[in-house]
Design a protein around this nucleic acid. Structure first.
Lengths: 69, 69
DNA sequence: ACTTCATGTCAACTATATATTACATTTTGT
DNA sequence: ACAAAATGTAATATATAGTTGACATGAAGT
């Protein structure tokens, strides 16, 4: 599932996927995949993203409804 | 780094590592390693743990000071 | 003393997060 | 219309999350 809150938070700082990727130390493709919901980042990476974007884990990565799998 | 908040939340529900592991669908060793801080779980697993323990991501998995690496 | 349960730990394996390179498409600015 | 930047999307490779099985220890109960 797409992470639109992440996309919005990034947009609010006028950052490209590339810039955010560099800021947190991953590849552009990894950021793209996370934003698209193609994968399931580690908590450490989530925290880095939160720090850069000035958001909390709950704001960016909580999901109310997760039909596991 | 040890995750004492996780340990405490588990203890508050009187659950063993084994029970929590079963509840979230991972092995006992994986729960042990997460609690010990030996690895870096995925966000999906963190959310499952939060749901079982009735805590938020921020409550269990935020870290203020993360000297990355 | 004996059993049971919870935790710690190790080794070998499998699944998947992430990197790298490369190319295609869409968006934006002029 | 054109060029440049941003995004989407493969293929292959590597690091590490997570599994399984086994053994050791310590606390709790009988």
């Amino acid at each position: 599932m797409k992470n639109l809150r992440l996309k919005a938070a990034r947009a609010a700082l006028d950052m490209s996927q590339q810039q955010l990727a560099e800021a947190v130390g991953v590849s552009r493709q990894t950021m793209n995949a996370i934003e698209k919901g193609d994968y399931n980042p580690t908590i450490k990476l989530c925290r880095k993203i939160c720090r850069v974007l000035g958001k909390s884990l709950d704001e960016l990565f909580w999901e109310e409804d997760e039909a596991d799998e």
